[in-house]
Design a protein around this nucleic acid. Structure first.
Lengths: 367, 367
DNA sequence: TCCAATTATGAGAAGACGCGACGTAAAGCT
DNA sequence: AGCTTTACGTCGCGTCTTCTCATAATTGGA
């Protein structure tokens, strides 16, 4: 059987109940035993046993008791989110963003560094390391304080966290990114494609919170598609799911071509369009058409609930979205909803944090 | 928590162990207590308790004891696959195939009926019912003997088992197929798209057994794509995943057009090609190109491990496959493997059987 | 034919876990 | 100070699994 690991004795029951208690504790903030027990669907005694186990492992602690109510004050417990931390990195062609988050996924440190698109791989890696260690040091963590780290980057990242193809970053192809960051902090290291991580972030806390199947469109200088089905990342066998580069779609005009023809950069275009400039509006429409063309391939294949648009062009806002909706409606029988990214440029690092947390929750918290 | 239902007491443990025992019993055929216990990872006593429970529910029974070995002969137990049955139907434009299978998924009855593509919906349904009931009666089942039924058909089938679009079958659109077959046998009824069910069948017992991510290409008069990721069907929000009808791919030549141009039907073409006919070979190549074009959209989006080719053109055999491999290699960075369908025309009904079994295993066996 | 070896069965004891119940502790309120 | 309210702590019960050991049933060889 799959569901039950190796043993089947009452120890399993205990693990399950501890897990339920931890879950309740994490969701509900500081809580009394009774509240916790009810939330976890257990008796008070059982919850107490589980809590003492969690306390021993450093994952729970007693906090200030309740006050102001009649009756004996209840002890309160809280999840020790500061018991461990994870690092999430976005290493792009032009910029690097490092985040340090606690076990709740709350970002407590953040460092941004500019990079040059022609910068050699070793230098870029050193920069990334600097950003990440700066976060870790600022938080005053000792070695072993980082439990997992994930890097998001542009290009195809395979299952072993190695970059198999990267057109935008020189020297990146063949790099074992996951292994690298893992060594920096002596912890498990992971790597994934940027658009995929952005999709993860939006599903975690962004526009796609209420949805289980979504397509993320990373637009702008970095382009790509992220795919989440059943709430889980679908990177494919080689990690190249959503890489449509070779798909011969008619009328698929690259955004860089559109912008080159217009002779203005995206920022200007969107501003002018907002102001009602007819020509700019037509450029926005063409950009939207290009994004919709690419997205339509994914939409027709997986029929998702939602398309989230992020990346540079998400600055185009509702204007761009409206045009994309119109184009998608023409391209698909059952066009999905279309929404703007909540986190914009931060979504990649945030998705990296989430992926690192996934590992921690699975392996160290036993969730 | 998700994993644990409502209760968390030792009853859960019991259910889990019964499940493990049932699983071991079903996998290994007739077995002794000791073998069963080891396979399930339990003690002999626990396995015995679980078995008595299963026996009460009619799912297990004692069979002839072991013989020929030294020592006290061990009692042997077997899974009572005949305790329940499921119906799988393929209702196509031109033919109807009904299967009756036991709880092992072994097909014990089968009926094939020809249909006319212009036949009205009511008549087609009556025909399907006749085929299915013939199977049930031939097996001597009483009412209540069918635990679940599934229909596969061409067109888009939504989550409520209703046909939302069907171009090939008149009067089909809007039909509540799942509800219909459920009423025939007084059991839960399901419906799904034919290509999707074919994918399920190939993954269950066919060419895709060893694979968890696959794309199925249904070729010929009925065309379509089936998608399985992580071993699970992906039909999408509205059930239209894989319906690429509107995708404007350049150089996507419909097979009917190719055949019309050639002026011969598929069967002739493949035979001539086998014999080395140059012109036929070129037609096969064009057919392969068309199939690869469509498949490439799915392959680029989900990056599967395997593409299975079924339906009418799978008669083209290795010849067609070889051409498809070549074309896919040009279209995709990481072309997946390509294999022929194992079950051919039977795969749809077989997939329907599997889907009905999925329900039975989940709801009635508690697996 | 009888005996040893082999293998499975059946019953009983021990350990672990979760839960209900009951008495007790600690606060607010009158 | 006494009552009410709410939570804590402990005890005992029932259930589940596993370990152990005596017993039963068969085969193969002396």
């Amino acid at each position: 059987m799959r569901t039950l690991g190796i043993t089947n004795d009452t120890a399993l029951l205990r693990r399950l109940n501890t897990r339920a208690t931890l879950h309740a504790l994490r969701e509900g903030g500081a809580q009394t035993l009774t509240q916790l027990a009810r939330a976890a669907g257990l008796s008070r005694q059982t919850a107490e046993v589980a809590l003492s186990d969690l306390t021993e492992r450093g994952l729970a602690e007693e906090s200030a008791p309740t006050e102001g109510k009649a009756g004996r004050p209840a002890r309160r417990f809280r999840f020790r989110a500061e018991a461990g931390h994870v690092v999430g990195l976005d290493v792009g062609p032009r910029r690097i963003l490092a985040m340090l988050a606690d076990l709740n996924g709350d970002v407590i440190e953040e460092r941004r560094l500019d990079a040059d698109e022609h910068m050699p791989a070793a230098e870029r890696l050193a920069l990334a390391k600097r950003a990440a260690t700066a976060c870790v040091e600022a938080a005053g963590l000792t070695r072993g304080g980082v439990w997992a780290a994930t890097v998001g980057t542009s290009g195809v990242v395979d299952r072993s966290a190695r970059v198999s193809v990267s057109h935008l970053i020189p020297g990146w192809t063949g790099l074992d990114l996951g292994g690298q960051v893992g060594r920096w902090f002596g912890c498990p290291g992971f790597a994934a494609n940027d658009a995929n991580l952005a999709a993860v972030a939006e599903h975690w806390r962004g526009s796609a919170r209420h949805v289980e199947d979504l397509v993320y469109v990373l637009s702008g200088y970095r382009a790509g598609h992220g795919l989440l089905l059943d709430g889980r990342l679908r990177a494919g066998r080689t990690g190249s799911a959503g890489e449509l580069g070779r798909l011969p779609l008619t009328g698929w005009e690259d955004s860089s071509v559109v912008l080159a023809k217009a002779g203005r950069d995206a920022e200007e275009i969107f501003q002018a369009a907002q102001a009602g400039d007819e020509q700019a509006l037509s450029v926005v429409d063409r950009l939207a058409h290009g994004l919709a063309r690419g997205a339509s391939a994914l939409v027709l294949v997986v029929d998702p609930e939602l398309v989230v648009v992020g990346g540079g062009f998400s600055r185009g806002g509702e204007l761009l979205l409206e045009r994309m909706r119109a184009h998608l409606a023409e391209m698909c029988l059952n066009p999905p909803e279309v929404a703007l990214s909540t986190f914009g440029e931060e979504s990649i690092a945030l998705g990296a944090v989430r992926m690192a947390l996934d590992h921690v929750e699975r392996e160290r918290l036993g969730l």
